[in-house]
C-alpha cells in the first residue's frame, strides 16, 4: 500500500516534470538545452543552455564530497574505533547537532564569515565561489556521511577485529585492512546519501555561490547550481512561457541526476554485498 503510494507519487512527479519540461523543446533542441553554454531565458531571442548550471552543480557537489567523505569517514573511525568509550556518546551528539542545523544558518555563516575570509585570504574579486559553496555543502553533508559510516563501522563484528589482532596486526592495520573493507557497503551508502544531500541542497548554496549563470572556469569563480536556478527564477517567471518550461526541464535534469545516483548506488551496493 505504502509502496504503491510512493510509486504513484514518483510517477506523477516524473510525468509532470517531463510533460511540462518537454515543452521547452518547442524553443530549443535537446542538445541546445543540455549542451548550450548560455542561459538568457528572458532576452530576445532567448537562450536556454543548462550546461553552466549542470557543471556548476557537478563542481560544487564534487568539491563538497572531496571534503565530506574523507572527513566523515575519519570522524566515523575516530568515534567507533579510536575514541575511549566515554568520549563516544558526546561525539555522536555533536555530529547529530551538526546535522540538525537549518541550511539557512549554514548559508548565513558562509556569507558573513567564510566568504569575506576567502576573499581576503585568496585575494579574489569575490568570495562567492564554487569553493565557498563546496566548503559549506561539505560541512552540511559531513554529519550525514559520518553518522551512517559510523553505524557501518560499528556493525563490523568484533570477531574480525580479534582475528586480525591475533595475527599480529596493529590496531591501525586492523582498521584499514579489515574494518574498513568489511564496512564498505555501508560506507558507500553513506557517501551516496551525502551526495544526495549535496546535490539537492538549495538555500545555503544560493547564499554563497554567487549565482552567475556562466560557465565556471575554475573553483575560484562564482557558479550557479540547478537548484539555485529554480529557486531564484520561479517567482519571476511567466506561467506557460518557454522560460517556465525551461525551469521544469532543469528540474527534470536534477531529478534524473538524483535518480541515476540512487540506482547506481543501489546496484553498486548490491554487488559489493554479493562479493562480501
Amino acid at each position: 500500500m505504502c509502496a504503491a503510494l510512493s510509486l504513484l507519487a514518483l510517477g506523477l512527479i516524473a510525468g509532470f516534470l517531463l510533460w511540462e519540461g518537454g515543452s521547452v523543446f518547442e524553443a530549443t533542441s535537446p542538445g541546445g538545452l543540455l549542451g548550450g553554454r548560455w542561459w538568457f531565458p528572458t532576452s530576445d531571442p532567448p537562450s536556454f543552455g543548462l550546461l553552466p548550471m549542470i557543471v556548476g552543480s557537478a563542481l560544487v557537489t564534487c568539491g563538497a564530497l572531496a571534503l565530506a567523505v574523507p572527513l566523515g569517514i575519519g570522524v566515523a573511525l575516530f568515534v567507533a574505533e579510536v575514541a575511549p568509550a566515554r568520549l563516544r556518546d558526546p561525539c555522536k551528539v555533536v555530529v547529530e547537532i551538526l546535522a540538525g542545523i537549518p541550511s539557512v544558518v549554514y548559508g548565513f555563516f558562509g556569507l558573513l564569515v567564510l566568504i569575506p575570509w576567502l576573499q581576503r585570504t585568496l585575494g579574489l574579486p569575490t568570495g562567492q565561489t564554487a569553493l565557498a559553496a563546496s566548503m559549506i555543502l561539505g560541512t552540511m553533508a559531513l554529519p550525514t556521511v559520518a553518522s551512517i559510516a559510523e553505524d557501518a563501522v560499528t556493525a563490523v563484528p568484533s570477531s574480525w577485529r580479534e582475528a586480525s589482532l591475533a595475527l599480529g596486526a596493529t590496531r591501525w592495520q586492523t582498521v584499514l585492512g579489515v574494518v574498513l573493507s568489511a564496512a564498505r557497503p555501508g560506507i558507500l551508502a553513506a557517501v551516496l546519501l551525502g551526495l544526495g544531500r549535496a546535490v539537492g541542497e538549495t538555500m545555503a548554496v544560493l547564499m554563497v555561490s554567487g549565482n552567475s549563470p556562466v560557465f565556471p572556469p575554475s573553483f575560484l569563480r562564482p557558479v550557479r547550481t540547478l537548484t539555485a536556478t529554480l529557486a531564484l527564477e520561479m517567482a519571476e517567471v511567466v506561467v506557460g512561457s518557454p522560460h517556465y518550461h525551461a525551469l521544469f526541464a532543469a528540474g527534470g535534469v536534477l531529478f534524473l541526476f538524483t535518480l541515476t545516483l540512487n540506482l547506481a548506488g543501489e546496484l553498486v551496493g548490491r554487488r559489493v554485498r554479493r562479493e562480501g
Partner: peptide
C-alpha cells in the same frame, strides 16, 4: 608475540574477503 602465538576462535571468523 601474536605472530609467534597464533589463535583459532570458537566460531569460525574468516574475513569477508
Amino acid at each position: 608475540l601474536r605472530r609467534r602465538i597464533g589463535m583459532v576462535f570458537q566460531r569460525p571468523n574468516p574475513f569477508p574477503k
